[in-house]
Design a protein around this nucleic acid. Structure first.
Lengths: 336, 336
DNA sequence: CTGAAAGCGCTTACAG
DNA sequence: CTGAAAGCGCTTACAG
């Protein structure tokens, strides 16, 4: 027969103190690795903690410390592997610094940033192109909270540190690759926002340097739009021999259009994506693309935020660009 | 010139009480929608909150309430779209009940469950086939915390509620579809764990009912293994005319093997996956598969957990199975 | 090097 | 219907 004392409460510093024969404060000092504790008592306290299975209560700690050791991460769409890969780089950095990520979906939840500040996060990482409400709320934050933008250069967020892939350079790599393969009629399906603009600039500059006409059409990052635009491009006059899509998802739409039209890839059409997502790596797609080293972007973003939180970097907002790399697969070949 | 009063502290119930001219406790009662507050004072308090932009501090609330309104979600691999889709169903349910999910990676972090209990989560959802350490830790929990297993039937976790796709039924649907197409030599690439076993059973039972020989080979859910096993099957004696893979990822490996061997799909080989992930929907793959209605599984799991937390269901562990549906695409066709 | 006390911002009985 | 008080489990000056 067990006594009916209700649910057992987990041990507290008080329990630990009693067991170790010291005061509550001493336990707290041990918890924080304070040097002002004798080795003997420290050992006694640690032993007591171990025996009792003591674990500090995060809520109590947050309340007393006036910080939560959590970081808000605003993202758009976890379905997009791009975000998942970036998180894979960000998460370990936060973990090493004793911080936990709290995810919020900026697309479905317009008040994502407000929701995070309600949770008293210590800082915020905005991942990818932020929606207008997100930008507004971040600006409204002023500088009460450190904010880092990861994965996109967002000029409206002037007070935030920025870590992004060098989209301009990536688009240059991709375009140069197509030129080397002898392509001259190259179309570019542009992406939205500043990232889309930067990729277009890199493409256009490279085409111009080669004295070639540029042909850009406005897309929106989605497979559907890539599909539709590619269909138009491939059935119109002066059919391009190569299409540079703003990202892998658009490129997948391009492949679909080519398949439907019976155009061999890369025999009759070369296709390049951007991001090197899992899609690009599928053997059936085998998409030439640009690896944006997105996990590295996430890692650098985490480091930037931790530096701000540590307070050792009170300087002006920084921008750090990660250099991308071309990944040649089966969707590109010589122009014929 | 602004006064240098340090960082402004957010308003507390004390601030609100002062502004509304009431006591702290009254503010707290309003916060909890208590009926024992006069309309007039309630209005005054709400107005004060609004003017001050008051938001309750979750840490303080957690500490006083002795619960955190958070739910630990143990998963294996966010890279797998299956998990993301399940989360999409789970998240809204938790949200409606004022709960927040805290994600933990059971694969990379062996102590995931312990980490979550350290955070004082109110309950736990184990998603997918749990690793051995996860099972051990959940069992060690006893019944101090409600646990729901989502997406797999895990017999070792006898005290937990279970919500899963009816894998047996799904495998029957898939196999029946192949039989209808006239296939007689069908191989099955089995998945690991209980889910793999259930899918195999459904397949085997259907084959047996049709008086056909079964041919199962052990896989492990991955593309690589699917690829390797399919290669063996397709180059061996008595080449199957159809392969049922345990999941979409394995099926992608099968497609790759078929492509390499120059076997037309579905002309010379029909391929079926399971899960209806984004992979299956790619036009270039166009994979016939079984939709496990995984978002619905996530939703039901959330509801089960909330019921436990509400305490209105102190009964024995429940098991709820979601009925899957066949999705016919381009990777299956008549046997020739 | 150690301890007693105040405080973090809430909720919850308990009196009135 | 309302208020004063104690308490949740921790940290942080402040004395010794």
């Amino acid at each position: 027969m067990t006594s009916d004392a209700g649910p057992v409460r987990p041990p507290t510093i008080r329990t630990v103190a009693a067991r170790a024969g010291v005061s509550k404060s001493l336990v707290s000092l041990v918890l924080q690795n304070s040097p002002r504790v004798s080795e003997q008592r420290r050992a006694a306290v640690l032993a007591a903690m171990d025996e009792l299975g003591y674990r500090p209560d995060p809520a109590a700690r947050s309340l007393a410390e006036r910080r939560t050791r959590t970081v808000g991460v605003v993202l758009d769409d976890l379905t997009n592997p791009w975000y998942v890969d970036l998180l894979a780089g960000l998460r370990p950095v936060l973990h090493e610094h004793g911080l936990r990520p709290l995810l919020a979906d900026g697309a479905t939840e317009p008040d994502a940033v407000a929701a995070l500040t309600d949770l008293r996060v210590d800082g915020i990482v905005v991942v990818g192109t932020p929606s207008d409400p997100v930008v507004e709320q971040v600006l409204a934050l002023g500088d009460v909270l450190p904010v880092v933008v990861a994965g996109t250069r967002e000029s409206r967020l002037g007070t935030a540190d920025i870590v992004a892939n060098d989209d301009d350079a990536g688009a240059r790599l991709a375009t140069a690759h197509l030129l080397e393969q002898g392509h001259r009629r190259i179309s570019h399906i542009v992406g939205r926002g500043e990232v889309g603009g930067l990729r277009r600039e890199g493409h256009v500059a490279t085409m111009r340097a080669a004295d070639l006409a540029q042909h850009c059409v406005d897309g929106d990052w989605t497979e559907e739009t890539g599909h539709r635009l590619a269909h138009e491009l491939l059935t119109g006059p002066d059919r391009p021999t190569a299409i540079l899509a703003a990202n892998d998802r658009s490129a997948v739409g391009v492949l679909t259009a080519a398949d439907e039209l019976g155009l061999a890839v890369p025999g009759e059409l070369s296709v390049v994506g951007y991001d090197d997502t899992v899609l690009a790596r599928l053997p059936r797609l085998s998409l030439t693309t640009v690896d944006s080293h997105i996990a590295e972007v996430g890692q650098a973003a985490g480091e930037a935020l931790c530096a701000r939180l540590a307070g050792d970097d009170p300087g002006a907002p920084t921008t750090r660009l990660i250099t991308p790399a071309l990944v040649v697969r089966g969707s590109t070949g010589p122009a014929r």
